[in-house]
Each structure stands twice: as structure tokens, then as C-alpha cells.
Amino acid sequence: MRTLRTRPVPPPPARPGDVLAETEALRVRLGAREVLAGVDVTVRAGEVLALVGPNGAGKSTLLGALAADLPAARGVVRIFGRPATGWTAPELALRRAVLPQSATLSFPFPVEEVVRMGRAPHTASPDEDDGVVAEAMAATEVTAFAARPFSALSGGERARVALARVLAQRAPLLLLDEPTAALDLKHQELVLRLCRDRARAGDAVVVVLHDLGLAAAYAHRVALLCAGRVAADGPSGEVFSEALLSRVYDQPVEVLPHPRTGAPLVIPRRDL
């Protein structure tokens, strides 16, 4: 007698402030190097959390651990209250969506099919899938080249298509690794507005950023990483001090309030 496995169902909607992911005393090793050394981070529904810090600080590694893609050497990662290792791959796919730094495909899939891959975890009707895919493509402004091969796109266009796939997945926890790196000014703002929109709708968004101005403008909270540890965690107005940023980045900076919004503007101190 063969036992039929039931497909996992999406989690119930989260309430604002619910903890969707967290790490506790997390240590991660890559080869012989300890990349994260005792990291505590909490990710809540309804907020955008920006991970910032210099190259090699551990931002992408932390994102990978939150996604359950990298194992913990010590400590624990919890997703929706359960240790990450306790979820199956299909269950995870309904709870978190991951945007890696670079999106590559071996075959020349049309853009629309790449976005549709985000619907794989779901059992919705074709009409519902069509609507979700169309909405995600419109939000990221890739509808105009829906039929073009993904391999024929520019770097920035590929990045937006990859984000559309993540949005189409409709997971309540979004983990985005440098989503603005290949984008022009307009589309950097577009992507961060989408992050705020998803948080406003009740999702939790974790985004790795190098642009401290974008982090200050759009993130509800920032976690500043340095040498595998969290140097500070809180609103950008509290975390982005001249002394702390100058020390962490090993580069003197000035922090000024934006003349209209008051958000911190971080400027390298230059002697020209």
C-alpha cells in the first residue's frame, strides 16, 4: 500500500511584530574560517531589516543562514519559531523567498517563465498563477520584455526579473542579497519601495545593502555587521553615528541629517 504525501500549506498570515526568523548565538564556518561569530538577529513581520557593513563582514552569510541554505556550526536559526533544520524544502519554499546576489540560468528561458518559477511551491489555479506573475512583472517593470530570453537581458534587467520571481513566490519572509547592486538610480528606488510595500502588507524583508543612504531612507531597522559580529542593531538614526561607522568601515565619515526627511546621510570625509 502506497501512502500519499500531502502537500504543505502556506503559513497563516502573520501579525505585525511577529518574529518570522531569528538567530541565537549563531556561528557559521566556511571552510576553515569562522564567518559569523555569535550573531543574534530577529526578523519581524511588518518591517524592513537592512544588513549593512564592509566587505567580508558576514552579511551574505547571515542571509544564507536565515534562509536555511547554510548550516550553523553552533547556535540556532529559527524560521517561524521552528529550528531551520526542522523544515522540509517544500515547507521552506512557502515561508521564505531568497534573492541571491547574481541570477544565472543555463537555458534561455523567456522572462515570463523565469518569473513563473516562483509559483512552483503553490497549488493555485492557472488563472491565479497568471495573475500573480503579471502583478510581479508589472511591479518590477519587466512586462515589456516578457518574451525575451533571460540570457539576453542586461545585468540590471536580470536583477529585476529575479526579484519578480521572488515576489511571485508570495512567501511572507523575503531575503534579498544586494538587490540594488546592478540597478540604476530609478530602479534602486523602485526596489526599495517594493520592500516597504511588502512590509506594509505584513511581510518581513531582510535586505543586504551597501548604500547606507538607501538603508537609512527605507529600512525600519539596520543591523551593522563587522568581522562576523553585530556591532549595532536598531533604527538608522541610532546606529549611524560618525564614530561607529568610521571605525567599522575604517574610513572617516560624516553623518548629516537630510534637509527634508531628517534621515541620516553618510558621506565619506574627503581631503581633496
Results as ranks from 00 to 15, higher is better:
178 E>A: 08
158 R>F: 09
9 V>A: 15
37 A>F: 01
101 Q>C: 04
139 A>H: 00
269 R>S: 07
247 R>V: 00
228 G>L: 11
194 L>Y: 08
39 V>W: 05
164 A>K: 09
22 E>G: 01
22 E>S: 14
73 A>S: 14
66 L>T: 05
166 V>I: 12
249 Y>P: 02
125 S>T: 15
195 C>Y: 10
97 A>W: 01
84 A>C: 05
172 P>Y: 11
45 A>H: 10
1 M>H: 12
166 V>N: 11
124 A>P: 00
189 E>D: 10
242 E>Q: 14
27 R>H: 15
219 A>V: 06
150 F>N: 08
216 A>I: 07
24 E>V: 13
208 V>P: 03
176 L>S: 13
48 V>H: 11
15 R>S: 15
247 R>F: 01
117 M>K: 05
170 R>T: 03
83 P>L: 02
68 A>Q: 02
232 A>L: 05
112 E>W: 09
92 L>Y: 00
237 G>P: 05
236 S>T: 13
148 R>A: 15
5 R>C: 06
148 R>N: 03
197 D>H: 08
222 V>E: 04
97 A>E: 05
1 M>G: 15
237 G>N: 02
152 A>L: 08
56 G>R: 04
218 Y>K: 06
12 P>S: 12
210 H>I: 08
48 V>A: 12
68 A>S: 13
96 R>K: 09
129 D>S: 07
165 R>W: 09
243 A>S: 13
93 A>T: 08
174 L>W: 07
207 V>R: 01
264 P>V: 05
203 D>H: 14
208 V>S: 10
29 R>H: 14
52 V>N: 00
186 K>I: 00
29 R>D: 14
255 V>G: 04
203 D>K: 02
212 L>H: 05
85 T>K: 04
194 L>P: 08
74 R>S: 15
80 F>R: 04
34 E>H: 07
49 L>Y: 12
268 P>G: 04
83 P>C: 03
144 A>Y: 02
119 R>G: 11
131 G>P: 00
47 E>C: 01
218 Y>C: 08
155 G>F: 07
29 R>P: 00
227 A>H: 14
39 V>I: 08
251 Q>M: 15
38 G>S: 09
91 E>G: 12
158 R>G: 14
238 E>W: 01
223 A>W: 00
15 R>D: 13
173 L>T: 11
254 E>A: 12
265 L>Q: 13
65 A>L: 02
40 D>Y: 04
146 A>I: 06
142 V>A: 09
145 F>W: 10
48 V>K: 11
147 A>N: 08
80 F>E: 10
72 A>L: 06
39 V>A: 03
184 D>C: 07
11 P>L: 11
117 M>I: 10
202 G>L: 10
137 M>A: 12
65 A>G: 09
200 R>Q: 13
55 N>T: 04
164 A>H: 11
259 P>D: 06
121 P>A: 03
220 H>E: 13
37 A>W: 00
140 T>Q: 11
56 G>C: 09
245 L>A: 04
98 V>L: 13
226 C>L: 01
63 L>S: 02
41 V>Y: 03
50 A>N: 10
51 L>C: 12
